[in-house]
Design a protein around this nucleic acid. Structure first.
Length: 490
RNA sequence: CGGGGCGUAGCGCAGUCCGGUUAGCGCACCUGGUUUGGGACCAGGGGGUCGCAGGUUCGAAUCCUGCCGCCCCGACCA
Protein backbone atom coordinates (compact mmCIF):
# COMPACT_ATOMS: atom_id res chain seq x y z
CA UNK A 1 0.00 0.00 0.00
CA UNK A 2 1.40 3.33 -1.01
CA UNK A 3 1.95 6.08 1.52
CA UNK A 4 -0.66 8.80 1.61
CA UNK A 5 0.14 12.21 0.22
CA UNK A 6 0.62 14.43 3.25
CA UNK A 7 -1.96 17.05 4.17
CA UNK A 8 0.60 19.78 3.94
CA UNK A 9 1.66 18.76 0.47
CA UNK A 10 -1.80 18.60 -1.05
CA UNK A 11 -4.82 18.52 1.23
CA UNK A 12 -7.32 17.66 -1.41
CA UNK A 13 -5.18 14.86 -2.81
CA UNK A 14 -4.70 13.56 0.72
CA UNK A 15 -8.46 13.44 1.17
CA UNK A 16 -9.09 11.63 -2.10
CA UNK A 17 -6.42 9.04 -1.41
CA UNK A 18 -7.53 8.52 2.16
CA UNK A 19 -11.14 7.85 1.21
CA UNK A 20 -10.09 5.26 -1.33
CA UNK A 21 -7.26 3.63 0.59
CA UNK A 22 -9.16 3.37 3.86
CA UNK A 23 -11.82 1.46 1.94
CA UNK A 24 -14.56 3.99 2.58
CA UNK A 25 -15.67 4.59 -1.00
CA UNK A 26 -14.60 4.58 -4.62
CA UNK A 27 -15.62 6.24 -7.84
CA UNK A 28 -18.12 4.17 -9.76
CA UNK A 29 -18.14 3.85 -13.51
CA UNK A 30 -21.15 6.11 -13.48
CA UNK A 31 -19.97 9.68 -13.76
CA UNK A 32 -20.24 11.61 -10.55
CA UNK A 33 -21.54 8.68 -8.54
CA UNK A 34 -19.76 6.77 -5.81
CA UNK A 35 -19.73 3.29 -4.43
CA UNK A 36 -19.78 3.34 -0.66
CA UNK A 37 -17.79 0.33 0.46
CA UNK A 38 -18.70 -1.83 3.46
CA UNK A 39 -16.29 -0.15 5.87
CA UNK A 40 -17.47 3.32 4.88
CA UNK A 41 -21.08 2.27 4.95
CA UNK A 42 -20.63 0.83 8.44
CA UNK A 43 -19.74 4.33 9.66
CA UNK A 44 -22.71 5.85 7.86
CA UNK A 45 -24.98 3.15 9.32
CA UNK A 46 -23.76 4.05 12.78
CA UNK A 47 -24.52 7.74 12.14
CA UNK A 48 -27.92 6.84 10.79
CA UNK A 49 -28.71 4.68 13.76
CA UNK A 50 -27.85 7.39 16.26
CA UNK A 51 -29.62 10.18 14.36
CA UNK A 52 -32.67 8.03 13.82
CA UNK A 53 -32.86 7.47 17.57
CA UNK A 54 -32.63 11.22 18.18
CA UNK A 55 -35.41 11.91 15.67
CA UNK A 56 -37.66 9.32 17.30
CA UNK A 57 -36.87 10.76 20.72
CA UNK A 58 -38.12 14.14 19.52
CA UNK A 59 -41.39 12.65 18.34
CA UNK A 60 -40.73 11.96 14.66
CA UNK A 61 -41.72 8.95 12.61
CA UNK A 62 -40.20 7.58 9.46
CA UNK A 63 -42.06 7.30 6.18
CA UNK A 64 -41.14 6.98 2.54
CA UNK A 65 -42.08 9.09 -0.48
CA UNK A 66 -41.43 8.44 -4.18
CA UNK A 67 -38.13 8.91 -5.95
CA UNK A 68 -39.94 10.46 -8.91
CA UNK A 69 -41.63 13.80 -8.86
CA UNK A 70 -43.93 15.00 -11.64
CA UNK A 71 -42.31 17.93 -13.38
CA UNK A 72 -45.28 20.18 -12.74
CA UNK A 73 -44.86 19.86 -8.95
CA UNK A 74 -41.43 21.40 -9.09
CA UNK A 75 -42.68 24.57 -10.67
CA UNK A 76 -45.33 25.29 -8.04
CA UNK A 77 -42.99 27.09 -5.69
CA UNK A 78 -41.12 29.74 -7.67
CA UNK A 79 -37.97 30.09 -5.60
CA UNK A 80 -37.73 26.35 -5.15
CA UNK A 81 -37.79 25.49 -8.84
CA UNK A 82 -35.35 28.27 -9.59
CA UNK A 83 -32.93 26.91 -7.05
CA UNK A 84 -32.99 23.35 -8.27
CA UNK A 85 -33.83 23.53 -11.98
CA UNK A 86 -30.22 23.54 -13.10
CA UNK A 87 -29.36 20.24 -11.48
CA UNK A 88 -32.33 17.98 -12.05
CA UNK A 89 -32.19 14.57 -13.69
CA UNK A 90 -35.30 13.99 -15.79
CA UNK A 91 -37.01 10.74 -16.77
CA UNK A 92 -38.58 11.07 -20.18
CA UNK A 93 -39.23 7.46 -21.29
CA UNK A 94 -40.30 4.20 -19.71
CA UNK A 95 -39.20 1.50 -22.14
CA UNK A 96 -36.24 0.23 -24.13
CA UNK A 97 -36.27 -1.71 -27.38
CA UNK A 98 -33.92 -3.30 -29.88
CA UNK A 99 -33.05 -1.06 -32.77
CA UNK A 100 -34.54 -2.91 -35.75
CA UNK A 101 -31.52 -1.99 -37.85
CA UNK A 102 -28.51 -2.38 -35.58
CA UNK A 103 -29.96 -4.63 -32.88
CA UNK A 104 -28.64 -2.27 -30.24
CA UNK A 105 -30.68 -1.41 -27.17
CA UNK A 106 -32.23 1.99 -27.62
CA UNK A 107 -34.89 4.10 -25.93
CA UNK A 108 -38.25 3.28 -27.45
CA UNK A 109 -39.40 6.56 -28.99
CA UNK A 110 -42.99 5.38 -28.65
CA UNK A 111 -42.59 5.17 -24.88
CA UNK A 112 -42.41 8.86 -24.14
CA UNK A 113 -43.93 9.85 -20.80
CA UNK A 114 -46.85 12.21 -21.01
CA UNK A 115 -45.54 14.11 -18.03
CA UNK A 116 -41.83 13.90 -17.44
CA UNK A 117 -40.61 12.87 -14.01
CA UNK A 118 -37.89 14.58 -12.01
CA UNK A 119 -35.59 12.42 -9.93
CA UNK A 120 -35.98 14.09 -6.53
CA UNK A 121 -33.28 16.58 -5.63
CA UNK A 122 -35.25 16.99 -2.37
CA UNK A 123 -38.84 16.07 -1.57
CA UNK A 124 -40.68 19.17 -0.43
CA UNK A 125 -42.97 19.26 -3.44
CA UNK A 126 -44.09 15.64 -3.50
CA UNK A 127 -44.48 15.65 0.26
CA UNK A 128 -46.54 18.83 0.42
CA UNK A 129 -48.68 17.56 -2.39
CA UNK A 130 -49.29 14.50 -0.21
CA UNK A 131 -49.76 16.43 3.03
CA UNK A 132 -52.60 18.30 1.37
CA UNK A 133 -54.61 15.10 1.66
CA UNK A 134 -53.55 14.46 5.23
CA UNK A 135 -54.45 17.79 6.71
CA UNK A 136 -57.94 19.19 7.25
CA UNK A 137 -58.06 20.47 10.79
CA UNK A 138 -55.78 21.67 13.53
CA UNK A 139 -56.30 18.21 15.03
CA UNK A 140 -54.24 16.70 12.21
CA UNK A 141 -51.26 18.81 13.23
CA UNK A 142 -48.41 18.66 13.79
CA UNK A 143 -47.12 16.15 11.28
CA UNK A 144 -43.60 15.09 12.21
CA UNK A 145 -42.18 12.87 9.51
CA UNK A 146 -38.69 11.95 8.40
CA UNK A 147 -37.47 9.90 5.50
CA UNK A 148 -34.14 8.21 4.81
CA UNK A 149 -33.57 8.33 1.09
CA UNK A 150 -31.28 8.92 -1.82
CA UNK A 151 -31.50 12.11 -3.86
CA UNK A 152 -29.94 13.25 -7.11
CA UNK A 153 -28.44 16.61 -7.90
CA UNK A 154 -26.65 16.74 -11.22
CA UNK A 155 -23.41 18.35 -10.11
CA UNK A 156 -20.76 19.57 -12.53
CA UNK A 157 -17.87 18.68 -10.29
CA UNK A 158 -17.95 15.96 -7.71
CA UNK A 159 -15.90 14.68 -4.80
CA UNK A 160 -16.38 11.50 -2.84
CA UNK A 161 -18.83 12.11 0.02
CA UNK A 162 -18.61 15.90 -0.23
CA UNK A 163 -20.47 16.31 -3.47
CA UNK A 164 -21.77 13.49 -5.65
CA UNK A 165 -24.59 13.33 -8.15
CA UNK A 166 -26.47 10.84 -6.01
CA UNK A 167 -26.19 10.88 -2.26
CA UNK A 168 -27.87 9.44 0.80
CA UNK A 169 -29.53 11.58 3.41
CA UNK A 170 -32.47 12.05 5.66
CA UNK A 171 -35.03 14.75 5.18
CA UNK A 172 -37.48 15.70 7.88
CA UNK A 173 -40.70 17.40 6.78
CA UNK A 174 -43.01 18.78 9.40
CA UNK A 175 -46.30 20.64 9.33
CA UNK A 176 -47.50 22.92 12.09
CA UNK A 177 -50.45 25.08 13.04
CA UNK A 178 -48.46 28.13 14.04
CA UNK A 179 -45.46 30.07 12.90
CA UNK A 180 -43.81 29.84 16.30
CA UNK A 181 -44.25 26.11 16.56
CA UNK A 182 -42.59 25.66 13.17
CA UNK A 183 -39.69 27.92 14.09
CA UNK A 184 -39.27 25.99 17.32
CA UNK A 185 -39.22 22.75 15.39
CA UNK A 186 -36.58 24.07 12.99
CA UNK A 187 -34.34 25.28 15.81
CA UNK A 188 -34.92 22.13 17.83
CA UNK A 189 -33.68 20.00 14.93
CA UNK A 190 -30.71 22.29 14.50
CA UNK A 191 -29.89 21.57 18.14
CA UNK A 192 -30.22 17.85 17.46
CA UNK A 193 -27.74 18.14 14.62
CA UNK A 194 -25.32 20.23 16.66
CA UNK A 195 -25.56 17.73 19.48
CA UNK A 196 -24.88 14.86 17.16
CA UNK A 197 -21.93 16.61 15.56
CA UNK A 198 -20.33 17.51 18.86
CA UNK A 199 -21.11 14.51 21.04
CA UNK A 200 -20.85 11.74 18.47
CA UNK A 201 -18.66 13.03 15.67
CA UNK A 202 -16.51 15.02 18.13
CA UNK A 203 -16.82 17.88 15.67
CA UNK A 204 -17.47 21.37 17.03
CA UNK A 205 -19.98 23.39 15.03
CA UNK A 206 -21.25 26.93 14.90
CA UNK A 207 -25.01 27.26 14.85
CA UNK A 208 -26.29 30.07 12.71
CA UNK A 209 -28.70 31.43 10.14
CA UNK A 210 -27.91 31.68 6.45
CA UNK A 211 -27.86 34.97 4.64
CA UNK A 212 -30.45 35.47 1.92
CA UNK A 213 -28.01 34.39 -0.79
CA UNK A 214 -27.18 31.10 0.90
CA UNK A 215 -30.72 30.29 1.98
CA UNK A 216 -32.53 27.13 0.84
CA UNK A 217 -34.67 27.66 -2.24
CA UNK A 218 -38.15 28.14 -0.86
CA UNK A 219 -37.28 28.79 2.79
CA UNK A 220 -37.92 31.86 4.91
CA UNK A 221 -34.98 31.03 7.11
CA UNK A 222 -32.24 28.44 6.82
CA UNK A 223 -30.51 27.45 10.02
CA UNK A 224 -27.24 25.61 9.72
CA UNK A 225 -24.35 24.07 11.53
CA UNK A 226 -20.97 25.02 10.15
CA UNK A 227 -17.76 23.15 10.88
CA UNK A 228 -14.16 24.10 10.16
CA UNK A 229 -11.93 21.59 8.44
CA UNK A 230 -8.21 21.18 9.06
CA UNK A 231 -7.29 23.07 5.90
CA UNK A 232 -9.16 26.14 7.08
CA UNK A 233 -12.18 25.71 4.84
CA UNK A 234 -15.68 25.63 6.23
CA UNK A 235 -18.15 22.86 5.65
CA UNK A 236 -21.89 23.08 6.03
CA UNK A 237 -22.72 19.96 7.98
CA UNK A 238 -26.47 20.22 8.34
CA UNK A 239 -29.38 22.50 7.60
CA UNK A 240 -32.81 23.08 9.08
CA UNK A 241 -35.30 25.27 7.27
CA UNK A 242 -38.23 27.30 8.44
CA UNK A 243 -40.33 27.22 5.29
CA UNK A 244 -43.04 29.58 6.45
CA UNK A 245 -46.23 29.01 4.50
CA UNK A 246 -44.51 28.92 1.12
CA UNK A 247 -45.16 25.28 0.34
CA UNK A 248 -48.58 25.28 1.97
CA UNK A 249 -49.58 28.10 -0.37
CA UNK A 250 -47.98 26.45 -3.39
CA UNK A 251 -49.84 23.19 -2.73
CA UNK A 252 -52.90 24.74 -1.15
CA UNK A 253 -52.59 23.06 2.22
CA UNK A 254 -54.97 24.74 4.64
CA UNK A 255 -56.42 23.65 7.94
CA UNK A 256 -59.42 24.65 9.95
CA UNK A 257 -58.56 26.28 13.26
CA UNK A 258 -60.27 25.69 16.57
CA UNK A 259 -62.11 28.93 16.01
CA UNK A 260 -63.37 27.77 12.62
CA UNK A 261 -61.04 29.87 10.46
CA UNK A 262 -59.02 28.61 7.51
CA UNK A 263 -55.24 29.00 7.58
CA UNK A 264 -52.21 27.86 5.66
CA UNK A 265 -49.99 25.32 7.38
CA UNK A 266 -46.50 26.24 8.61
CA UNK A 267 -43.64 24.02 7.52
CA UNK A 268 -40.09 22.98 8.23
CA UNK A 269 -37.60 20.67 6.57
CA UNK A 270 -34.19 19.57 7.76
CA UNK A 271 -31.48 17.26 6.55
CA UNK A 272 -28.03 15.82 6.88
CA UNK A 273 -26.32 13.69 4.27
CA UNK A 274 -23.42 11.37 3.59
CA UNK A 275 -21.50 14.62 3.43
CA UNK A 276 -21.10 14.15 7.17
CA UNK A 277 -18.66 11.39 6.24
CA UNK A 278 -16.47 13.96 4.54
CA UNK A 279 -16.75 16.23 7.56
CA UNK A 280 -15.78 13.42 9.89
CA UNK A 281 -12.77 12.50 7.78
CA UNK A 282 -11.49 16.06 7.41
CA UNK A 283 -11.98 16.96 11.05
CA UNK A 284 -9.81 14.31 12.68
CA UNK A 285 -7.69 12.33 10.26
CA UNK A 286 -3.93 12.63 9.82
CA UNK A 287 -1.16 11.68 7.40
CA UNK A 288 -1.29 8.06 8.48
CA UNK A 289 -4.96 7.77 7.60
CA UNK A 290 -8.37 7.93 9.13
CA UNK A 291 -8.95 8.88 12.76
CA UNK A 292 -12.38 7.98 14.04
CA UNK A 293 -14.14 9.05 17.20
CA UNK A 294 -14.84 5.87 19.20
CA UNK A 295 -18.58 6.48 19.29
CA UNK A 296 -18.82 6.11 15.51
CA UNK A 297 -16.02 3.63 14.82
CA UNK A 298 -17.21 0.30 13.39
CA UNK A 299 -14.32 -1.38 15.24
CA UNK A 300 -13.22 0.12 18.55
CA UNK A 301 -10.33 -2.14 19.37
CA UNK A 302 -8.17 -4.44 17.32
CA UNK A 303 -5.98 -7.09 18.89
CA UNK A 304 -2.84 -7.95 16.92
CA UNK A 305 -1.01 -11.08 18.03
CA UNK A 306 2.75 -11.28 17.57
CA UNK A 307 4.41 -14.68 17.49
CA UNK A 308 7.06 -16.90 15.99
CA UNK A 309 5.90 -20.41 16.72
CA UNK A 310 2.48 -22.04 16.49
CA UNK A 311 2.45 -22.50 20.26
CA UNK A 312 3.06 -18.82 20.80
CA UNK A 313 0.39 -17.97 18.30
CA UNK A 314 -2.15 -20.16 20.06
CA UNK A 315 -1.26 -18.79 23.49
CA UNK A 316 -1.35 -15.14 22.45
CA UNK A 317 -4.57 -15.53 20.47
CA UNK A 318 -6.24 -17.17 23.42
CA UNK A 319 -5.48 -14.16 25.61
CA UNK A 320 -6.59 -11.92 22.76
CA UNK A 321 -9.90 -13.72 22.40
CA UNK A 322 -10.54 -13.40 26.13
CA UNK A 323 -9.83 -9.67 26.08
CA UNK A 324 -12.00 -9.16 23.00
CA UNK A 325 -14.87 -11.10 24.55
CA UNK A 326 -14.64 -9.03 27.69
CA UNK A 327 -14.83 -5.82 25.62
CA UNK A 328 -17.67 -7.13 23.50
CA UNK A 329 -19.47 -7.94 26.74
CA UNK A 330 -19.31 -4.23 27.56
CA UNK A 331 -20.82 -3.26 24.25
CA UNK A 332 -17.66 -2.52 22.26
CA UNK A 333 -16.63 -3.90 18.90
CA UNK A 334 -13.36 -5.71 19.40
CA UNK A 335 -11.60 -7.69 16.70
CA UNK A 336 -8.93 -10.30 17.09
CA UNK A 337 -6.89 -10.29 13.90
CA UNK A 338 -5.39 -13.75 13.82
CA UNK A 339 -4.84 -13.68 10.06
CA UNK A 340 -1.59 -15.57 9.57
CA UNK A 341 -1.00 -14.35 6.04
CA UNK A 342 -0.28 -10.76 7.15
CA UNK A 343 2.54 -9.71 9.40
CA UNK A 344 2.08 -7.56 12.47
CA UNK A 345 3.74 -4.49 10.99
CA UNK A 346 1.43 -4.63 8.01
CA UNK A 347 -1.56 -4.88 10.32
CA UNK A 348 -0.44 -1.90 12.39
CA UNK A 349 -0.28 0.28 9.30
CA UNK A 350 -3.57 -1.06 7.98
CA UNK A 351 -5.56 -0.36 11.14
CA UNK A 352 -4.03 3.06 11.44
CA UNK A 353 -5.13 3.77 7.89
CA UNK A 354 -8.64 2.65 8.83
CA UNK A 355 -8.77 4.69 11.99
CA UNK A 356 -9.40 1.99 14.58
CA UNK A 357 -9.17 4.00 17.84
CA UNK A 358 -7.28 1.50 19.97
CA UNK A 359 -4.83 -1.21 19.05
CA UNK A 360 -3.65 -3.91 21.39
CA UNK A 361 -0.53 -5.90 20.55
CA UNK A 362 0.70 -8.93 22.46
CA UNK A 363 3.80 -10.98 21.80
CA UNK A 364 5.88 -13.66 23.50
CA UNK A 365 7.55 -11.11 25.80
CA UNK A 366 4.17 -9.81 26.92
CA UNK A 367 2.96 -13.32 27.44
CA UNK A 368 5.83 -13.89 29.83
CA UNK A 369 5.33 -10.60 31.65
CA UNK A 370 1.55 -10.67 31.64
CA UNK A 371 1.31 -7.38 29.74
CA UNK A 372 -0.09 -5.98 26.51
CA UNK A 373 0.93 -2.97 24.44
CA UNK A 374 -1.92 -0.54 24.01
CA UNK A 375 -1.69 2.10 21.30
CA UNK A 376 -3.92 5.14 20.76
CA UNK A 377 -4.68 5.92 17.15
CA UNK A 378 -5.21 9.66 17.65
CA UNK A 379 -1.96 10.48 19.47
CA UNK A 380 0.13 7.47 18.48
CA UNK A 381 1.04 6.91 22.15
CA UNK A 382 1.88 3.37 23.20
CA UNK A 383 1.89 1.96 26.69
CA UNK A 384 2.53 -1.36 28.38
CA UNK A 385 -0.37 -2.34 30.59
CA UNK A 386 -0.89 -5.45 32.77
CA UNK A 387 -3.21 -7.81 30.94
CA UNK A 388 -5.74 -7.99 33.77
CA UNK A 389 -6.12 -4.20 33.73
CA UNK A 390 -6.34 -3.97 29.95
CA UNK A 391 -10.11 -4.04 29.59
CA UNK A 392 -10.81 -1.21 32.03
CA UNK A 393 -7.85 0.72 30.69
CA UNK A 394 -9.20 0.48 27.16
CA UNK A 395 -12.72 1.46 28.15
CA UNK A 396 -11.39 4.60 29.82
CA UNK A 397 -9.10 5.27 26.90
CA UNK A 398 -11.99 5.16 24.44
CA UNK A 399 -13.86 7.76 26.48
CA UNK A 400 -10.76 9.88 26.69
CA UNK A 401 -10.15 9.70 22.93
CA UNK A 402 -13.72 10.80 22.26
CA UNK A 403 -13.28 13.82 24.53
CA UNK A 404 -9.83 14.78 23.36
CA UNK A 405 -10.72 14.58 19.68
CA UNK A 406 -13.43 17.11 20.34
CA UNK A 407 -11.14 19.35 22.36
CA UNK A 408 -8.44 19.21 19.74
CA UNK A 409 -10.88 20.08 16.97
CA UNK A 410 -12.34 22.89 19.06
CA UNK A 411 -8.88 24.31 19.76
CA UNK A 412 -8.16 24.21 16.06
CA UNK A 413 -11.33 26.11 15.32
CA UNK A 414 -10.69 28.72 17.99
CA UNK A 415 -7.14 29.18 16.73
CA UNK A 416 -8.48 29.58 13.20
CA UNK A 417 -11.23 32.02 13.94
CA UNK A 418 -10.05 35.55 13.43
CA UNK A 419 -11.69 38.85 14.22
CA UNK A 420 -11.09 41.34 11.45
CA UNK A 421 -12.05 45.00 11.00
CA UNK A 422 -10.57 46.07 7.70
CA UNK A 423 -10.80 44.87 4.14
CA UNK A 424 -7.01 44.56 3.87
CA UNK A 425 -6.86 42.42 6.96
CA UNK A 426 -9.77 40.34 5.70
CA UNK A 427 -7.99 39.45 2.46
CA UNK A 428 -4.74 38.80 4.25
CA UNK A 429 -6.22 36.36 6.76
CA UNK A 430 -8.19 34.63 4.05
CA UNK A 431 -5.11 34.09 1.90
CA UNK A 432 -2.84 33.26 4.80
CA UNK A 433 -4.16 31.26 7.70
CA UNK A 434 -7.69 30.82 6.41
CA UNK A 435 -10.43 29.65 8.74
CA UNK A 436 -13.47 31.52 10.01
CA UNK A 437 -13.40 35.28 9.91
CA UNK A 438 -15.65 37.32 12.16
CA UNK A 439 -16.37 40.58 10.44
CA UNK A 440 -18.98 43.27 10.07
CA UNK A 441 -21.26 43.16 7.05
CA UNK A 442 -23.87 45.67 5.96
CA UNK A 443 -26.53 43.01 5.51
CA UNK A 444 -26.98 43.34 1.74
CA UNK A 445 -26.72 40.57 -0.83
CA UNK A 446 -24.89 42.96 -3.17
CA UNK A 447 -22.01 43.34 -0.75
CA UNK A 448 -21.94 39.62 -0.04
CA UNK A 449 -21.76 38.94 -3.77
CA UNK A 450 -18.94 41.42 -4.29
CA UNK A 451 -16.94 39.92 -1.45
CA UNK A 452 -17.46 36.48 -2.91
CA UNK A 453 -16.34 37.59 -6.36
CA UNK A 454 -13.25 39.25 -4.96
CA UNK A 455 -12.15 36.55 -2.52
CA UNK A 456 -14.24 33.39 -2.98
CA UNK A 457 -15.23 33.74 0.66
CA UNK A 458 -18.91 33.48 1.53
CA UNK A 459 -20.93 34.22 4.60
CA UNK A 460 -21.16 30.85 6.28
CA UNK A 461 -23.72 32.07 8.76
CA UNK A 462 -24.92 34.72 11.08
CA UNK A 463 -24.19 33.00 14.40
CA UNK A 464 -27.19 32.46 16.65
CA UNK A 465 -25.14 33.77 19.56
CA UNK A 466 -24.13 36.89 17.62
CA UNK A 467 -23.47 39.80 19.95
CA UNK A 468 -24.89 43.24 19.31
CA UNK A 469 -21.97 45.42 18.34
CA UNK A 470 -21.85 48.64 16.38
CA UNK A 471 -19.41 48.48 13.50
CA UNK A 472 -18.77 49.23 9.86
CA UNK A 473 -19.00 46.74 7.02
CA UNK A 474 -15.49 45.67 6.03
CA UNK A 475 -16.36 46.07 2.36
CA UNK A 476 -18.83 48.92 1.99
CA UNK A 477 -18.16 50.80 5.22
CA UNK A 478 -21.89 51.00 5.90
CA UNK A 479 -23.11 50.53 9.45
CA UNK A 480 -23.49 47.03 10.90
CA UNK A 481 -25.01 45.74 14.10
CA UNK A 482 -22.94 42.61 14.54
CA UNK A 483 -20.34 40.29 13.13
CA UNK A 484 -21.01 37.43 10.75
CA UNK A 485 -18.85 34.42 9.94
CA UNK A 486 -16.99 34.41 6.65
CA UNK A 487 -14.90 31.58 5.18
CA UNK A 488 -14.03 29.80 2.02
CA UNK A 489 -16.25 26.77 1.94
CA UNK A 490 -16.58 23.29 0.53
C1' C B 1 -20.13 24.18 -21.36
C1' G B 2 -14.71 26.18 -21.68
C1' G B 3 -9.34 24.77 -20.63
C1' G B 4 -5.92 20.67 -19.44
C1' G B 5 -4.75 15.45 -18.71
C1' C B 6 -5.50 10.35 -19.14
C1' G B 7 -7.37 5.47 -21.15
C1' U B 8 -1.87 -0.69 -21.85
C1' A B 9 -3.05 -7.19 -16.22
C1' G B 10 -7.03 -6.19 -10.14
C1' C B 11 -4.28 -1.26 -8.91
C1' G B 12 -0.28 2.28 -10.28
C1' C B 13 2.60 3.11 -14.52
C1' A B 14 6.61 2.66 -18.77
C1' G B 15 6.57 1.93 -23.96
C1' U B 16 3.57 6.01 -28.36
C1' C B 17 7.51 11.44 -30.44
C1' C B 18 10.89 8.07 -34.45
C1' G B 19 5.76 1.51 -36.59
C1' G B 20 9.32 -4.07 -36.62
C1' U B 21 10.60 -10.72 -32.35
C1' U B 22 6.70 -13.55 -27.85
C1' A B 23 4.04 -5.85 -24.94
C1' G B 24 7.21 -4.65 -20.08
C1' C B 25 7.87 -2.88 -14.77
C1' G B 26 6.20 -2.11 -9.47
C1' C B 27 2.33 -3.47 -6.11
C1' A B 28 -1.38 -7.13 -5.50
C1' C B 29 -2.50 -12.52 -6.52
C1' C B 30 -1.00 -18.19 -6.54
C1' U B 31 2.91 -22.18 -5.01
C1' G B 32 7.15 -23.53 -2.02
C1' G B 33 10.76 -22.20 1.54
C1' U B 34 13.05 -18.97 5.11
C1' U B 35 10.85 -15.24 8.28
C1' U B 36 7.48 -12.67 12.05
C1' G B 37 7.82 -6.69 18.48
C1' G B 38 6.28 -1.17 12.65
C1' G B 39 3.97 -2.15 5.69
C1' A B 40 9.60 -9.23 5.24
C1' C B 41 12.93 -11.95 1.81
C1' C B 42 14.23 -15.63 -1.99
C1' A B 43 12.71 -18.78 -5.93
C1' G B 44 8.98 -20.15 -9.22
C1' G B 45 4.09 -19.06 -11.43
C1' G B 46 -0.84 -17.20 -13.35
C1' G B 47 -3.11 -13.10 -15.40
C1' G B 48 -3.65 -8.43 -21.54
C1' U B 49 -9.78 -7.88 -27.17
C1' C B 50 -3.11 -2.05 -25.46
C1' G B 51 -10.90 2.40 -24.38
C1' C B 52 -14.12 1.50 -29.17
C1' A B 53 -14.67 1.73 -34.60
C1' G B 54 -12.62 2.59 -39.15
C1' G B 55 -8.23 3.69 -42.18
C1' U B 56 -2.75 3.76 -43.85
C1' U B 57 1.02 -0.28 -44.06
C1' C B 58 4.19 -6.36 -45.70
C1' G B 59 3.59 -5.17 -40.37
C1' A B 60 0.00 -0.65 -35.64
C1' A B 61 -0.21 0.00 -28.37
C1' U B 62 2.78 3.32 -31.67
C1' C B 63 0.72 6.98 -37.64
C1' C B 64 -4.37 9.17 -39.52
C1' U B 65 -9.87 9.98 -38.85
C1' G B 66 -14.11 9.56 -35.94
C1' C B 67 -16.38 8.18 -31.43
C1' C B 68 -16.75 6.86 -26.13
C1' G B 69 -15.36 7.25 -21.09
C1' C B 70 -13.04 9.13 -16.76
C1' C B 71 -10.04 12.55 -13.81
C1' C B 72 -8.17 17.57 -12.78
C1' C B 73 -8.82 23.23 -13.19
C1' G B 74 -13.06 27.11 -13.86
C1' A B 75 -18.69 28.74 -13.82
C1' C B 76 -23.20 25.89 -10.32
C1' C B 77 -23.98 23.51 -5.54
C1' A B 78 -25.54 19.96 0.59
Amino acid sequence: MAKLTSREQDYSKWYNELVVQADLAQHSDVKGCMVIKPYGFAIWERMREVLDGMFKATGHQNAYFPLFIPKSYMSREAAHVEGFAKECAVVTHYRLMNDPETGEIIVDPEAKLEEELIVRPTSETIIWNTYKGWIQSYRDLPILVNQWANVVRWEMRTRLFLRTAEFLWQEGHTAHATRNEAIEEATQMLDVYADFAEKWMAMPVVKGVKSEAERFAGAEDTYCIEALMQDGKALQAGTSHFLGQNFARAFDVQFQTKEGGLEYVWATSWGVSTRLMGALIMTHSDDKGLVLPPKLAPIHVVFVPIYKTDDQRAAVCEKGAELCDALIGQGYEAKLDDDDTKRSGWKFAEYELKGVPVRVAMGPRDLENGTVEIARRDTGEKELVPLEEAKDYIVKMLELIQEELYTKALNHRVAHTTRVDTWEEFKEVLEGKGGFIEAHWDGTSETEEKIKDATKATIRCIPLDQKEEEGRCIFSGNPSRGRVLFAKAY
